[in-house]
Deep mutational scan, measured.
Amino acid sequence: VTTYKLVINGKTLKGETTTKAVDAETAEKAFKQYANDNGVDGVWTYDDATKTFTVTEMV
């Protein structure tokens, strides 16, 4: 189990959260659900070296 981080660069919501998951795919599903629940829709990137997902909403 690995800890993954999500950085949110939203128009109205900004911040970070973490989740523990067995792999990046599982973490991504959890983060996308979290973003969807919070009304964040944007471009996703993932950095495997730092285990960090970033979602950026276009203005």
Rank of each mutant, 00 (worst) to 15 (best):
T2N: 12
G39R: 07
E28V: 08
V55I: 08
G39C: 07
K11S: 09
Q33W: 05
V1C: 14
W44Q: 01
V1M: 13
E57F: 06
K14Y: 07
T18F: 14
A49M: 13
A30P: 02
L6V: 03
F31H: 01
V55M: 04
V59K: 09
K20D: 15
D41H: 14
D37Q: 12
K5G: 03
K20Y: 15
E16D: 05
A49L: 09
F53Q: 00
E28Y: 15
V59M: 13
L13G: 07
K29T: 10
T12F: 13
D41V: 15
N9T: 08
K11D: 05
T12E: 10
V43C: 08
T19I: 12
Y34S: 02
G10F: 14
Y4M: 01
A35Y: 03
V22H: 09
E28R: 13
D48M: 11
T12W: 11
G10K: 04
T45K: 06
V1K: 08
L6I: 03
A24E: 08
E57C: 05
G39F: 08
F53P: 00
T2M: 15
T56D: 10
K11V: 12
K51M: 08
K14E: 05
E28F: 15
Y46K: 01
E16Q: 13
K51G: 04
D37F: 08
Q33K: 13
T26W: 07
G15R: 14
V40F: 11
V43R: 08
A24C: 10
A35G: 03
T19K: 05
T3F: 08
V43K: 08
W44M: 03
K20R: 08
L6D: 00
M58V: 12
V55W: 02
D37M: 11
V22Q: 10
K20H: 14
K32W: 06
M58Y: 13
T3E: 14
T52I: 08
Q33A: 11
D47Q: 05
K11A: 08
E57T: 08
A30T: 14
Y34W: 10
L13W: 13
T50P: 02
K20C: 11
V22P: 09
V1L: 09
F31V: 02
Y46L: 02
D37S: 11
G15I: 15
A30Q: 10
G39K: 08
L6H: 00
F53Y: 06
K5D: 02
K20N: 15
V43N: 07
G15M: 15
F53C: 01
K32V: 06
T52K: 03
V7A: 04
I8T: 03
G10H: 07
K5V: 10
E57S: 07
K51V: 04
T19P: 01
K14V: 09
Y34F: 09
E25C: 10
E16R: 07
V1N: 13
